[in-house]
Design a protein around this nucleic acid. Structure first.
Length: 305
DNA sequence: AAGGGTCACAACCGCCGCCCT
DNA sequence: GAGGGCGGCGGTTGTGACCCT
């Protein structure tokens, strides 16, 4: 099961692709298209399995691949989308033009590694942290977070637990795994505490209150098969690439004038916009100024490059 | 300069789901 | 409906480059 017939061939080559192989694959696909991947190696004169050819094309040779470092906007988008859809890299990649799932996955994993390595500076769990325990449903978490934020703005909470939130689909994929690290039954704490705080802060930061959540807004997040057109209206040319000499404060790159190229955040209704967050982005680590008000949470622990 | 550690990225592996027979 | 082929996806590993001591 799962073993592709083409991969059983003894003569199939593995490992890094040579420039000659790349050239063969490019030449074949640009002239014939790939059609059936299992036929590609033979027709292209490659001693690779079709799966390997597909991967090489998708992750490296495709002409529309964007290479190089992720821009700050892309970082934000990845982090925001991950908070919504979890480890669905292909889904996330579909909203980042020119980026591959593999690339995003690698980026994320390296970020996670950094976070795990980073010594924890927060020992006590906040009330918000306690929400992210396995015992809480996604609906519970959403209700509390949203109402917290609305209350903070003296806005009338809207009933968010309508039918659309009865979905069994997980909203915060981090909840179960990270929540356990915040569990009081785990007094030894976890090196992942600060990572959990990042996620919790993201979940409860002002982006929710600026785009007041409604069922419609959250539909995309709740339904695993639906994602809002996050970047459809954004051309690749608008993406900001981090240039040498520009600063990345805790991974949150800031343009010199503090402006984004995304224009009016309202255009991205439903999308988590880091640019709308307020607070001091400088320094390392998270400063939870008031445990009861996660809105004031300062985020600054994104991967720095 | 050399060796070890770290990081980024390419590639592989195994599983899942769809489609066709 | 069952089984096989295949594309797609996420997790994991391998490897080369770079950095630090």
């Amino acid at each position: 099961m799962g073993q592709h017939s083409c991969c059983n061939q003894q003569k199939v080559k593995r490992g890094l692709w040579s420039p000659e192989e790349d050239e063969k694959l490019i030449r074949y696909i640009t002239t014939h298209g790939y059609g059936c991947w299992s036929e590609v190696p033979e027709k292209a004169g490659l001693q690779r399995c079709g799966k390997s050819c597909r991967l090489r094309w998708i992750n490296y040779l495709r002409p529309d691949i964007r290479r190089g470092r992720f821009s700050a906007e892309e970082e934000k988008l990845i982090i925001s989308l991950h908070a919504i859809v979890g480890n669905r890299w292909a889904h996330i990649a579909s909203h980042l033009p020119g980026r591959t799932d593999n690339e995003i996955k690698n980026y994320w994993n390296s970020w996670i590694k950094k976070k795990i390595k980073k010594p924890s500076t927060q020992s006590s769990a906040t009330p918000t942290q306690n929400l992210f325990q396995p015992g809480y449903s996604s609906t519970d978490q959403l209700d509390v977070i949203i109402n917290q934020n609305l209350a903070h703005q003296n806005l009338t909470p809207k009933p968010v637990s309508d039918s659309i939130f009865l979905s069994q689909s997980p909203f915060f994929t981090f909840d179960a795994s990270l929540g356990s690290s915040c569990d009081s039954s785990n007094p030894s704490g976890s090196v992942r505490d600060d990572l959990a705080q990042d996620v919790q802060a993201l979940n409860s930061c002002k982006i929710w209150s600026n785009n007041i959540p409604t069922s419609a807004n959250f539909a995309s997040a709740i339904d695993p098969n639906y994602l809002p057109p996050l970047v459809d209206s954004m051309s690749i040319g608008n993406l900001v690439t981090m240039e040498e000499g520009e600063t990345s404060v805790g991974g949150c790159y800031e343009k010199q004038q503090g402006e984004t190229d995304w224009g009016d955040p309202q255009n991205y209704n439903g999308l988590l916009m880091w640019d709308q967050m307020q607070g001091d982005l400088g320094g390392e680590g998270i400063q939870v100024q008031d445990a009861s008000s996660a809105l004031d949470t300062t985020l600054s622990s994104f991967p720095s490059r």
